[in-house]
C-alpha cells in the first residue's frame, strides 16, 4: 500500500510541477554574512559568555589549571551527591572532586537511574558565540544524549578553541551522521502568555565553564 502511495505522491508532484522548465538552475546566491561579530578569540569568548548569560546559563571562567577546582566548586554549590560522566572524560577534570558518587555513562545507566542523579558533567563539540549555543554530538568527552538530559544540572566545559562565531562557521565543522543536541541556555518555555520562563523538562541549571589561558 505504501509503495503504491510512494509512486502516487511522486507522480502527483511531477504533474503539479508541469509548468516548471527542466533546466539546471544557477548556484544559489547566499548574500548573507558568514558572521556578525569580529572573529578574534577574546571577542568570541566575550560574546558567547554574554549570550549564554542572557539566557540564564551560569558562565564560569577558568584556566586549564583552574578547571578541576572550578568543577569541584560548582558541584559543591549545587550540593551534588551523585554525578554522571562520560566514560572518556579527560583525566584530571575530577581531581578536585570529593565525596561525590560517580556514575559512568553506558548501557547500564538507564533513564530511571539517571533520574535520581544530581548532575552531569561533559565537554562539547563546539560552541557558537552569536547565538549562545553549545553543540553536543556524542563525541569525545560527551557521552550519550540521555546523559545531559535527565539530570537536573548540567556542567558543560567549553575550550576557548572550540568557540566559533556563527552558524555558517559551525555547520561545516559538524558531522551530520552524529546525533546532535544544540543547547542555548537551560530548559525554558514561552507557553504561558508568551513570556519566557526557565525550567521545564531539561536541566534547569546549566553551568558553562569557559576554559582559556587568560580568564577575566
Amino acid at each position: 500500500m505504501t509503495t503504491d502511495s510512494r509512486e502516487r505522491v511522486l507522480a502527483r508532484i511531477r504533474t503539479a510541477l508541469g509548468d516548471v522548465p527542466a533546466t539546471d538552475e544557477p548556484p544559489l546566491r547566499r548574500g548573507y554574512l558568514p558572521a556578525h561579530v569580529t572573529e578574534d578569540r577574546p571577542t568570541l569568548l566575550a560574546v558567547l559568555a554574554e549570550n549564554l548569560a542572557e539566557y540564564r546559563a551560569h558562565v564560569n571562567h577558568a584556566t586549564p589549571q583552574q578547571l578541576p577546582e572550578v568543577i569541584g566548586r560548582l558541584l559543591r554549590e549545587h550540593d551534588t551527591r551523585s554525578l554522571a560522566v562520560p566514560a572518556d572524560l579527560p583525566p584530571g577534570w575530577l581531581s578536585a572532586v570529593g565525596g561525590v558518587r560517580m556514575l559512568t555513562d553506558g548501557p547500564a545507566l538507564t533513564a530511571e537511574r539517571l533520574d535520581g542523579i544530581d548532575s552531569a558533567l561533559t565537554g562539547c563539540a563546539l560552541a557558537v558565540a552569536e547565538t549562545g549555543t553549545i553543540v553536543l554530538d556524542a563525541g569525545p568527552g560527551q557521552g550519550r544524549r540521555i546523559l545531559t538530559l535527565v539530570p537536573d544540572h548540567h556542567i558543560c566545559v567549553v575550550r576557548a578553541d572550540q568557540v566559533v562565531a556563527s552558524l555558517p562557521r559551525a555547520l561545516p565543522l559538524l558531522d551530520p551522521t552524529r546525533p546532535q543536541t544544540w543547547i542555548s541556555g537551560p530548559s525554558a518555555t514561552s507557553d504561558i502568555e508568551l513570556d519566557r520562563v526557565e525550567g521545564v523538562h531539561g536541566p534547569r541549571r546549566l553551568d558553562v565553564v569557559l576554559v582559556g589561558e587568560a580568564p577575566r
Partner: peptide, 25 residues
C-alpha cells in the same frame, strides 16, 4: 526560525538525528 518564532537568537534545544545510532537513542 528562532528569531521569527520565539524572538530568540536560538531556541534552547535543537535535536538533529540521522537514522539510528547504536546505543544512543
Amino acid at each position: 526560525l528562532p528569531r521569527s518564532s520565539t524572538a530568540e537568537r536560538m531556541n534552547p534545544y535543537t535535536s538533529i538525528w540521522t537514522g539510528t545510532t547504536r546505543g544512543d537513542g
